[in-house]
């Protein structure tokens, strides 16, 4: 068993689960989308990204890039959330849609990462 791989797959799947958890629900209903879920998703995603830094294998760099995509999407969503609620004082329904959409994109990026991970694991005949 490869410990490094196991830890990474744990984090990437946790990130995916949290992300999907945040994403599910009515798109314009803020009570379906908890900010805690968002926070947890960002944190776990960042950890997963750092775990892939310095990986020289072909698939490793690919996973790193998809993790970075998810990071950018989520951090941008969080930043937008902070701006919308604190700076512009917008109504919930006005901005939550965009944030959920962004997190959906991040979920797809993380999902791709998981697929690559699956392929990588399956092709390993040990």
């Amino acid at each position: 068993m490869d410990r490094e791989k196991a830890i990474f797959s744990f984090f990437i799947m946790l990130a995916f689960a949290l992300n999907v958890g945040f994403f599910l629900g009515d798109i314009d209903n803020i009570s379906h989308h908890s900010s805690f879920a968002m926070f947890a998703a960002i944190t776990v995603n960042l950890i997963a990204t750092v775990l892939k830094i310095g990986d020289r294998s072909q698939l490793g760099t690919f996973m790193l890039s998809s993790c970075l995509v998810a990071d950018i999407q989520l951090i941008f969503a969080a930043g937008y959330w902070a701006f919308a609620s604190h700076v512009f004082d917008l109504q919930h329904t006005e901005y939550i849609v965009d944030i959920v959409k962004l997190s959906g994109g991040a979920a797809i990026a993380t999902f791709i990462s998981i697929i690559i991970l699956l392929i990588d694991t399956a092709s390993m005949r040990r």
Binding site: T43, V50, I53, G54, R56
Partner: peptide
């Protein structure tokens, strides 16, 4: 080879930092 080694060594401090921030914020 060397740069990837260096980056690998940065993993632990970075994760510590992320965790510390996350726990504090939470």
């Amino acid at each position: 080879q060397v740069t990837s080694l260096i980056m690998r060594q940065m993993r632990r401090p970075l994760i510590t930092l992320i965790c510390a921030y996350a726990i504090s914020m939470l």
